[in-house]
């Protein structure tokens, strides 16, 4: 198994719980995703980052907490970033997760649905996706370095990569 980098271990990290959104101006934002998707919105110019742990593609009107659903997470992240910045943020996005950890059932796996729904929500918000590490069958530990915008993806048995 991979270990967090020395830098990641040394810098303060906020854990983003399942279905929630974290916003930070420094340090790290972290979460674990399997079929869920971690979407990071990065405003490098203002030194802002938001990380949502999205579980499901559509809220169907049940938007609490907003970070749980792809269609409500992106607008809420933008609102939170604008609140911090005092103006509309200029963001890019990175996507991680959407794995199919168990080969259960038929139809489109929930992870794929989550990724597609987030891509749609980001396109509607005109936010470019500049990097992604999605799909496969393994979980991922995701660490967002707010200062650099680097997103480190660690897995069990499939190595580490930085987006």
């Amino acid at each position: 198994m991979t270990r967090p980098t020395d830098r990641a271990a040394a810098v303060h990290a906020d854990a983003v719980a399942i279905g929630r959104i974290g916003v930070a101006t420094q340090g790290m934002l972290r979460t674990f995703v399997g079929s869920c998707v971690a979407v990071a919105l990065l405003d490098r110019r203002r030194g802002l980052a938001a990380l949502a742990h999205v579980m499901l593609p559509a809220s169907h009107g049940a938007a609490t907490p907003p970070g749980k659903f792809a269609d409500t997470a992106v607008p809420e992240m933008l609102r939170l970033l604008a609140e911090r910045a005092g103006e509309a943020p200029a963001c890019t996005a990175k996507l991680v997760g959407g794995a199919r950890m168990f080969a259960f059932g038929t139809g489109t796996p929930i992870g794929e649905q989550n990724v597609a729904a987030l891509e749609h929500a980001l396109a509607v918000a005109r936010i470019p996706v500049i990097a992604r590490d999605c799909g496969g069958d393994c979980g991922r530990r995701v660490s967002v370095d707010v200062a650099t915008g680097a997103v480190t993806v660690e897995t069990v048995g499939h190595g580490t990569r930085t987006l």
Binding site: I18, F32, V33, G34, S35, C36, M55, L56, A99, M101, F102, I110, C138, G139, R140, R141, V156
Partner: peptide
């Protein structure tokens, strides 16, 4: 895998 990601998959 990681404990949290295994549970997420089961909870979905």
């Amino acid at each position: 895998d990681f404990p949290a990601t295994v549970m997420q998959a089961a909870l979905s």
